[in-house]
Nucleic acid binder design. Sequence first.
DNA 1: CCAGGGCGCTTAACCGGATAAGTGACCCGA
DNA 2: TCGGGTCACTTATCCGGTTAAGCGCCCTGG
Lengths: 348, 348
Amino acid sequence: MTRRVTIADIAAAAGVSKGAVSYALNGRPGVSEATRGKILAIAAEMGFVPNRAARSLSVSSAQAVGIALRRSARTLGIEPYFMELISGIEATLSAGSFGLTLQIVGTVEEELEVYRRWWAERRVDGVLLCDVGTSDRRLDFVADLGLPAVAVGGPIEGARLPAVWHDDAEPCRDILEYLYALGHRRVARVAGLPRLLHTSIRDTAYAETAAGLDLESMVTFHSDYTGEQGAQITRRLLSSARRPTAIIYDNDVMAVAGLGVAHELGLEIPEQLSVVAWDDSPLCRLTHPALTSLARDIPAYGSKSAEVLMSLISADGTEPPNAAVRTFSVQCRPAQLSPRGSTGPVPA
Amino acid sequence: MTRRVTIADIAAAAGVSKGAVSYALNGRPGVSEATRGKILAIAAEMGFVPNRAARSLSVSSAQAVGIALRRSARTLGIEPYFMELISGIEATLSAGSFGLTLQIVGTVEEELEVYRRWWAERRVDGVLLCDVGTSDRRLDFVADLGLPAVAVGGPIEGARLPAVWHDDAEPCRDILEYLYALGHRRVARVAGLPRLLHTSIRDTAYAETAAGLDLESMVTFHSDYTGEQGAQITRRLLSSARRPTAIIYDNDVMAVAGLGVAHELGLEIPEQLSVVAWDDSPLCRLTHPALTSLARDIPAYGSKSAEVLMSLISADGTEPPNAAVRTFSVQCRPAQLSPRGSTGPVPA
DNA sequence: CCAGGGCGCTTAACCGGATAAGTGACCCGA
DNA sequence: TCGGGTCACTTATCCGGTTAAGCGCCCTGG
C-alpha cells in the first residue's frame, strides 16, 4: 500500500522549504527556474497529487460542481435525457479537473436544503439547475445564497443568474407546419409537466401556431412524462369520436408508449396515425416504424452549461459582482425536425 | 449574502473555546450537558454546517464515494440500468450524509488513473466498481492502492474486496426451461459484452442448461448492448433458413429493437416469435405486446452495494485489515421471470 | 564604498475543524 | 487537612496546502 506524498515530502527531498515547493508547483514567481525544474521533477517522480481538502481549505474552493435531480428513479432511468446531459457536463468538467457531485432529491424543499448544505460545507463551487420551472424558487434561493449557478433551460426574464437554453417555440412551429402540410387537421399533443418552463413555452407556441392555421382541433394533455401516462392518454385520444390523425409527444418514452397503444388498437402507422417525439434518443430508432423526432445535441447542451458555470466560478472571486456576467445567457441550436417513418400524409 | 458560520463564531457567541464547541457538536465527553445544550442551540440558530474541507483535512475522510462509468454517453443514456443503480446508491449514501462523485471515462487506463487521483487527492473514501469483467485489472489495482472498494457484480473468486452480486445462472435455467415448456426447440440469444463477468456466467449457464434439454439449436451472438447491434443481429437471425422461435436478449434496449425488427419483417408476436428481455425496465411495458422479462430490483442492488462500501469504509480505520470483512460477499435476490405478452407457445 | 533594490528562498500565519495535553476547581476519602 | 482523582473547559498542535512578510545576498548606480 503506497503512502500518500505531501509537499513536505517533496520539500525534504529537494532540500527546500514547503513554500518554495508550493510556488514551484503552482507556477508562481519566487523560485529560480533551476529550482522549479528540480522540484517539478521530484514531484513527478514521487507521483505527487495535492490533497484536495487542504487546498480547498486554503483557497476556499472545492473544485467541484453539484447537480441535484428532482425526479424519481424510474423517470431518471428511462429518460435518456439526464444521462446524456450529465455525460456532456462531465466531459467539460473533467477537462478542467473539476469533479461532479450528484444528488437525487424528492421535493423542492429538499433540493433547496441540499444547495444550502453544499454551500455551507463548501462541497461545491457552483450548481447546475435542471428542469427549470415557470416560477422557480431555486433561482432566487441560490442567488440570495451567493452560490454560483447556471440554469439549464430558459429564457428566464429578470434572471439573476446565467441561463443556457435554446428556443423551443421554433421547433413547435416547424412540426405543426410539417404536419399541416401533410394534411393533418386534427392534432393532439401529450405534453410534459405543466410546471416546467419549456412545457409552458411549447404550450404557447403550439397555441399561437395553431391559431394561424385552419386546424379542426389542437388539444393538449399534460402528463408526468412516464410511459404509463403516455399510454393512458393515447388510449383516450384514440378512442374518442373524431380521433386525431397526428399526436406529438413531449418526450421519446411517451411516444414509444403511444406507438405501442396504436399497435394494440390495430392502427397502421403512419397510414392511420402520425406520431412525433421530442428528443431524438436512440430509442426513436428502435421502434417500427422509426419515430419522427425533434433532435437536439443534449451532451453539447450539458457541456455548454458546465462551461458557463466554470467561467462564472472563476470570475467570481477576481471580478466585482458584474451583472452582465451573472445574467449572461447562452442560446444553443434549437431542436431540428428529423422525419422518419412514423409520420405520413393523411389519406384522402 | 449570508456569511458562513464557523465553530469560532459559535465559540464566541457561547463564550467558550473552539475545542468545547467541537466536543459539544460531536457528542463527545468534555462538556457539561448544560453547556452542550447551549452550544447546540446556538449552532442551530446560526445555521452552522461544518466546512467539509476542514473536517476532511482533520479526520482524513472525504465523506464521499466515487463511481467511474466506462460507457459511452449514448449507452449510458438509453440503459435504464445505470440511473436506477445510481439512484439506489444515492439514497443510501445521502442517508449517511455521504456524497457521490461521478466520472465518466473512456478507457480502463483512464479509469485506473481516476481511482489513483481520487485516492491521492482524498476526494473519495471508496469506490464502487461497475461492469465487473471476467479478468478485471481494477480489482487488484484498488486493492493495491488500499482504496476501499466494492464490486457491483460477481461472484469473484480469490477476491481481495467485497462483492455485491446475485446469481445469474438460475434465471438462465428458468427462462430456458420456461421456453422449452412452451415448445421452443430453436432458441437464440443476443448476449452483451463478452468481457463482462455476468455475460460469461450466463454463457455457461445457458450452455449447460441447453445440454440437458433436447434443443435443436441454442446459438449465442455477442453485442455491445446497443439497439443497433440488437436489431442487426435479430435481422440476421430471423432471415436464416431455420430461424429461432424464441430470442433472449441480454438487455431491454436490444429486446425492444428486436421487437421492432420482427414487426418490420411482419412476424406476429408471440405467435411466430417469442421474445424475452433481461432487466425489466418500464421500457418493457411500453411495447406491444409487452415484453416478458427477467426482473430484479436494481435500486436495491445499488443501495446494498453502497451500504457494504460504507461499512467497509467505517471499519477501515478502526479495525485491523480483516480478510473476512474485506472479502465479504453479499448475495442479492436473483432476477425473477415476469411473463408477459411477448412469449407464447409454439404452434403445432 | 555604501545605500537601495530586486531576486530567491525561508518563516510563519492562516484556512476550519479535531484532539491530545494541560489547568484549575471541586469533591472525596484517609 | 491534604493528596489524588474527576470534571469541565482551555490551550496548543496538527492535518496539508497557500501566501504575506521577512531576510540574506548580490548587483548596480551615485
